[in-house]
């Protein structure tokens, strides 16, 4: 199945959707959004690309295997818990940078945790979707 309309649109939509997913991720701490939703949007964007251009092409633009996304997501989320451990605080205590970053604002370990969730959810959803599409 290849549709010229879809494959033309996806070239515009893919960067927009990925950008939107990052926006959702960053917005999530105090407002609706967060790693879970962001990860789902990112996975949806790549899945749409896979629909338009085929599974092999989707794997190509993804570069890494979805499994590695899952593993790195878990690793990042785990590190957000272990960093406070190093400073003698309980696991997963929130630690923030003392100064604000441009664009991102006040960041700390909760963002790191959200980033882990983002990667994990995107990897998980993509693993399922791409495996199912390969089955055909």
């Amino acid at each position: 199945m290849s549709s010229i309309i879809l494959s033309t649109t996806i070239r515009l939509l893919l960067p927009l959707l990925l950008l939107f997913s990052v926006f959702l991720l960053l917005r999530g701490h105090n407002e609706p959004g967060g790693g879970f939703v962001g990860g789902l949007v990112a996975a949806a964007a790549i899945s749409l690309y896979a629909l338009a251009e085929g599974v092999a092409a989707a794997h190509r633009i993804l570069i890494v295997n979805p499994r590695q996304l899952i593993a790195s997501g878990l690793l990042v989320a785990l590190s957000s818990g272990v960093i406070p451990l190093m400073t003698g605080r309980p696991f997963q205590s929130g630690l923030w940078l003392p100064y604000s970053l441009p664009v991102l604002g006040h960041v700390g370990t909760p963002l790191l945790f959200d980033l882990g969730v983002y990667l994990l959810v995107a990897g998980m959803a993509l693993l399922i979707v791409l495996s199912l599409m390969e089955e055909e």
């Binding site: 295997n65 499994r67 690793l75 451990l85 696991f91």
Partner: peptide, 21 residues
């Protein structure tokens, strides 16, 4: 944080196993 070790160790091991898929 001794109490967290029995949770962190299996999780870290699982992650390491996933990375070495």
């Amino acid at each position: 944080n001794l109490l967290f070790l029995p949770l962190v160790i299996p999780l870290a091991t699982a992650v390491a196993c996933l990375l070495a898929w």
